Simulated assay, not measured.
Amino acid sequence: MQKEIDNCLSIINSGGLILYPTDTVWGIGCDATNPEAVKKVYKLKQREDSKALICLVSDIRMLEKFVYEVPQPAYDIIQLSTKPTTIIYDQPINVAGNLIAPDNTLAIRVASDEFCQKLIRKLKRPLVSTSANISGRPTPMSFSEISSEILKGVDYIVNLHRDKTNNNPSTIIKLSNSGIVKIIRK
């Protein structure tokens, strides 16, 4: 696992894209603070940059460095969730501007996967995590379902868990600082 983490760090730190297993589905990732890398993700997915992407952080301490104010209920949701849960936060900070949605929000999940946690801890900043598919096409549930366009479009493919069928995408909850809670995806 350490070799895979080192290989990923080399690519991510040079502005490249990785394809990696997450706590949900296979993801396309890059440094969430690098606008040029984020632009490459949108291009590969053939997705409008007005449609925001998800980021992964290693823990709550890291989350607090990239959101101006984490609403109190978020701590309970993160702690009590029994499945991967992504929360859309108001006022993200210290991330690439083209990662932030037009309404000044950003979807962030505290990673529960061991590989992701270790990679993000070493990276010391959030990692973009968007499903490994062209926008509008079905999300691949296993490595073997990932299209050749995606495989050829990344700079590095993690050599872990390729035989595993992945879980469903995460639950997504929008949690505004005004107290409004909205479930976007169960």
Rank of each mutant, 00 (worst) to 15 (best):
I12Y: 00
M141Q: 12
I146F: 03
I100Y: 04
P169D: 09
L9S: 04
D155T: 07
T105V: 11
Q72H: 10
T85W: 01
M1V: 15
M62R: 08
K40L: 07
Q79Y: 15
V181R: 13
I120N: 00
T130H: 04
R137P: 13
L9H: 05
F143D: 02
I28C: 05
L99E: 01
I11Y: 11
L63V: 05
I184S: 08
N94E: 13
A107K: 02
Y42F: 08
L9K: 03
I77S: 09
Q2W: 14
V154H: 01
S50M: 14
M141E: 10
R162C: 14
A32K: 02
D90R: 08
Y42A: 01
R185E: 08
P92F: 07
Q72V: 10
I88K: 00
I184M: 13
D59G: 03
I88Y: 01
S10I: 14
C8A: 11
K65Q: 13
L63T: 03
A37L: 00
D90H: 08
E114Q: 14
P73N: 11
P71F: 01
N177L: 08
N94L: 11
T165K: 11
L63Q: 02
S131E: 04
P102G: 10
I28V: 07
I172G: 02
A132T: 03
K39L: 02
N166S: 14
P169N: 14
E64K: 06
K152F: 13
L17G: 00
G29I: 01
E145C: 07
K186S: 12
S176F: 07
T24E: 03
P73H: 08
G179T: 05
Y68H: 11
I54A: 02
I146V: 06
T85Q: 00
S147W: 06
